[in-house]
């Protein structure tokens, strides 16, 4: 039991930062991400003993995180009938130089938000968190081909939504 406690503490220490960043990107605001992140590591604590030795702990954490993010998003949708707009103010303001740039970012955030969670998560894991397609499959369920298809679908939809967008 003590060994388990040490291992899970190590796991939390090593991955908490990237998991929180993942949740912030996925959910679009810090408050929900912090809540979901707490939830992730609570669940990880409880389920750690059932994690098969030698399995990919990082992909496993991303899987728990994706599920927690889905629950959080569902809870938020229930709480407000009006779809909550992307709240750029809760994201760090670094690098925002002008109101025009802010408005553009808001448009991008909306296009990203409009993607199905699975596609958004798949693109995020591939593009920003450096996961291989096999790891994305382990994180989101399904096989490698489905993971790849989700990433590609996300890119295609964004390409259409952001046509003529001057980044």
């Amino acid at each position: 039991m003590r060994g388990t406690a040490i291992h899970i503490a190590e796991l939390v220490g090593r991955h908490r930062g990237e998991i929180l960043a993942y949740l912030m990107r996925l959910l679009g605001n810090e408050h929900d991400a912090q809540d979901a992140c707490q939830d992730v590591f609570l669940r990880a604590h409880r389920a750690f003993a059932r994690l098969a030795p030698g399995s990919n702990a990082r992909a496993w954490l991303y899987r728990i995180a994706t599920n927690c993010a889905r629950n959080t998003a569902r809870g938020r949708a229930r709480r407000s009938a009006r779809r909550a707009d992307v709240d750029l103010d809760t994201l760090p303001a670094h690098g925002i130089t002008s109101p025009e740039r802010r408005e553009r970012l808001r448009l991008v955030a909306r296009a990203v938000r409009a993607l199905p969670t699975r596609q958004r998560a798949a693109l995020l894991l591939r593009r920003f968190h450096g996961l291989e397609y096999a790891e994305i499959a382990a994180s989101l369920g399904g096989n490698e081909a489905a993971a790849r298809a989700n990433v590609y679908q996300a890119v295609k939809k964004l390409r259409v939504a952001l046509e003529g967008f001057d980044a």
Binding site: G17, E18, A21, M24, R25, L91, P92, H94, G95, I96, R104, L105, V108, A109, A111, V112, L123, L124, R127, F128, V155, L158, R159, A161, L162, G164, F165, D166, A167
Partner: peptide, 15 residues
């Protein structure tokens, strides 16, 4: 353009 725009959005979340 599309990927650059998404990068700009997501890169704003630092560690």
């Amino acid at each position: 353009e599309a990927l650059g725009a998404v990068d700009a959005l997501w890169a704003r979340v630092p560690r």
